[in-house]
Design a binder for these strands. Structure first.
Lengths: 146, 146
DNA sequence: ATCCGAAATTATAATATTTGTCAATAAACA
DNA sequence: TGTTTATTGACAAATATTATAATTTCGGAT
């Protein structure tokens, strides 16, 4: 799912119409690296597209999630945040500065296998890490030393 | 952290007062197996304690989270849900019926290790599984066969 | 055991977040 | 191009969460 044409086709396959707004939100999320929340998406896009409605952002996100073009990363204790990069990856949440970094963890097969018992089927797993990012880690050390 | 006395001590250690309401919410969450949301906690407890306020539930949950007596499991696309069982475990979300099951996955060390590079420190990981639970799995099969 | 100050609870108001309504508009397709 | 139908945008409504102020309770010191 790399090319615009494919993404347009996906929307059509699901029976959704391909609108300017939908492409704008999708493009925004695919370019962004900060896993923005609804409000951020809205505010950023409103500068360029002043008539854009907040409800449209919500509707569009719901539609993009259904088609698998975008996902809600389920950040804890915060507002919903979205990711337009659909290649398999995990997230690292810095508990100090709030930054969210992408992380590729291979070899998840045995985890899936471990969960797949007692009659369950497992489609997908979410693996999130929490701790201090590089910058905050450095700060902590500096504080301790001083 | 098994005994009431320990939990009371934990609250005191953090400088929080030990109130009836806090113990009631904590006890409720430790007994519950359904990872209830704020509203469910409030409604269930209000039967027994009619003067209990919704704001108290929010405040208490925030306080219990800070002391590590309870955690927000970060269920996706839903309201916040809480868990009073603090032994290390993962969650399985049935994508059909919405049930949340507990799951113990051992051997997470190498995952932590994999994330711990580029200057990061990792305190904790969240590992959630998504799929169909035993009951929904059976239903799917039945539908397909018929 | 009783009193005092700080903190927590309650009830309510305010805010924030998300969803619904519906006329106007734009996309798909003949 | 015209017709059909889904989507948009503005606003209203519903939910969820947080803030405020008066009262009550906790916990330490009498």
């Amino acid at each position: 799912m790399r090319h615009l044409a494919d993404q347009i086709q996906t929307m059509k396959d699901f029976g959704f119409k391909v609108t300017h707004q939908r492409l704008v939100v999708l493009d925004y999320l695919q370019r962004s690296k900060e896993h923005p929340c609804v409000e951020k998406i809205y505010n950023d896009l409103k500068e360029r597209y002043p008539t854009l409605s907040l409800a449209t952002i919500y509707n569009t996100l719901e539609m993009l999630e259904k088609t698998g073009l975008v996902k809600d990363i389920g950040a804890p204790e915060e507002r919903r945040r979205f990711d337009g990069i659909m290649t398999e990856h995990s997230h690292f949440f810095c508990t100090k500065c709030g930054k969210i970094e992408d992380l590729v963890i291979s070899d998840k097969g045995h985890l899936m296998e471990a969960a797949r018992n007692n009659g369950r089927s497992v489609d997908r797993l979410r693996l999130d890490f929490f701790g201090l990012c590089k910058d905050c880690q450095v700060e902590e050390k500096t504080v301790q030393e001083s």
